[in-house]
């Protein structure tokens, strides 16, 4: 029961984006499409999984005062692995996410889970926690990316969702998508309303 909870809590109840509000930079920057959000989410999930596993294993051998630098080295190692592997095998996605891949290292979620969870719990729980938090992050990013892509480009994962030609689609949706949602301001605005909706749902 509690094992399962460690895996699922990150997805809704303690969702890192909507509830804890951590790791805002990549959330806003890489969600101009659902695909980019998904890619960024999965890259972060891998780092969370790796760092949580290793840190839960070595935490008790690490003197308290060098705790944080040690964790940072572990996290940075996994980030670099993701960086190199993506560069080799998923180049176009790698180029779109750009600088935000190395910046996973300063994503507060990763260090936060290392410090708050992995250093105090066993391997299995830490692995589940890492994957769960990662999936919650991925879910949030894909949702935000999807909303922005649909509003700003009339497409979802690159497929057009609102037909171009029939008269009714022009009458209802006008000619052009609401471009601003793909640009920087749209990121802030879409996320603001998503969190507000989440707040509202949480209360009920």
């Amino acid at each position: 029961m509690s094992r399962l909870y460690n895996l699922t809590k990150g997805i809704i109840k303690e969702n890192p984006i909507f509830v804890i509000v951590l790791g805002m930079c990549p959330t806003l920057a890489t969600t101009s499409s659902a695909m980019n959000g998904l890619g960024m989410g999965l890259a972060t999930t891998f780092v969370l999984f790796g760092s949580n596993t290793v840190i839960s294993l070595i935490a008790r051998f690490i003197p308290d005062k060098v705790r944080i630098p040690s964790y940072i080295v572990v996290i940075a190692t996994f980030v670099t692995i993701v960086d190199l592997v993506m560069q080799a095998y998923t180049q176009s996605l790698y180029e779109k996410l750009g600088i935000f891949i190395p910046l996973i290292v300063v994503n507060c979620i990763v260090l936060g889970r290392a410090e708050a969870f992995a250093s105090k719990n066993g391997v299995l729980d830490s692995v589940l926690d890492g994957i769960g938090m990662g999936l919650g992050f991925t879910f949030a990013l894909t949702l935000l990316g999807g909303i922005r892509e649909v509003l700003g480009n009339f497409s979802f994962f690159g497929l057009r969702v609102i037909p171009k030609d029939p008269w009714w689609s022009k009458a209802v949706f006008f000619h052009d998508p609401i471009l601003v949602f793909i640009l920087a301001p749209g990121a802030f605005i879409a996320l603001a309303y998503l969190i507000a909706i989440f707040n509202r749902l949480k209360k009920n």
Binding site: P185, F188, I189, A192, Y193, A196
Partner: peptide, 16 residues
């Protein structure tokens, strides 16, 4: 529902 983070983000959006 907009208090706190959401209104801050919305403000940031308008600033952007």
């Amino acid at each position: 529902g907009m208090k706190g983070v959401p209104i801050a983000l919305l403000t940031a959006g308008i600033l952007a």
